[in-house]
């Protein structure tokens, strides 16, 4: 009973917000869209990222002969800059984002590049392989959300696999053949950004308004901030995570 009620409330909220967003977006095209930018840092000692034993597959060992592989759960640059943090507008109610850049998830040297791939709901992405060894690409969403798990092989030279996700979810993805290969598809609604090696990010295409920006880090959790974006202007939100 309660679930039904929730759903009715959610539905009417979505419809109402949707109407509001429609009005808003009409204003926006005249006013110009703003952006939200900032930096994400780690305050404290970077956790130890242990090395990866790839001896199961000589190809992988060879690929990392000069550059030892290690876990990528928390990637910290100089000055505590946190890489691979996804920033998105958690109270987004506007339209789906126009597809700009092509999203590519590469299997390279028996690791995932990028380790975290953020995307909009229903946005297409490609899974490719650069390796001369067979991978299987196996995302493991919770089917209750509407995202359905699948599992495809990618031998050397395989054609890209093109997919998209239906619902908002943080989806772990792994290769069963190389169990250390572990990454994330972060499916959000609306504009998003992922921090670079200097911990910087810019969320583009944000219409003027007041938003909640949420930062997601796979080990350190989420944080949220209120940000206001003026017409054509830039909002700012910096986040600091503490090591667990």
């Amino acid at each position: 009973m309660r679930n039904r009620y929730n759903f009715a409330v959610a539905l009417s909220t979505v419809v109402l917000l949707g109407c509001g967003a429609l009005l808003l977006s009409q204003n926006v095209s005249a006013a110009g869209e703003g952006k939200i930018a900032g930096t994400v840092k780690l305050d404290g000692t970077a956790p130890h990222m242990r090395g990866i034993d790839m001896s199961k597959d000589p190809y992988c060992v060879k690929a990392h002969a000069t550059d030892p592989a290690h876990m990528e759960n928390v990637v910290v640059g100089s000055g505590g800059a946190l890489e691979n943090v996804v920033l998105y507008i958690s109270d987004w109610s506007g339209p789906a984002q126009p597809e700009t850049a092509e999203l590519v998830f590469d299997q390279k040297n028996c690791m995932y590049t990028p380790h975290v791939l953020a995307m909009d709901v229903n946005q297409k992405f490609k899974v490719v392989t650069s390796d001369q060894t067979t991978h299987n690409i196996h995302p493991n969403p919770n089917p209750m959300t509407g995202n359905i798990p699948w599992n495809q092989s990618q031998p050397p030279g395989a054609a890209p696999v093109e997919k998209s996700w239906k619902a908002v979810e943080v989806i772990p993805v792994q290769c069963n053949i190389h169990p250390w290969m572990h990454g994330w598809f972060v499916v959000v609604k609306g504009p998003y950004a992922t921090t670079d090696a200097s911990g910087n990010y810019t969320i583009n295409n944000v219409p003027p308004g007041s938003y909640t920006v949420t930062a997601w880090q796979e080990d350190l959790g989420t944080q949220a901030q209120k940000v206001t974006v003026a017409a054509g202007g830039a909002g700012s939100a910096n986040f600091t995570f503490k090591p667990k």
Partner: peptide, 17 residues
Amino acid sequence: TLLFGSAVLLAFPAAAS
């Protein structure tokens, strides 16, 4: 899913259950 779901609970009640 729970954490993430609660952030977007209004839009996605299914994610939390």
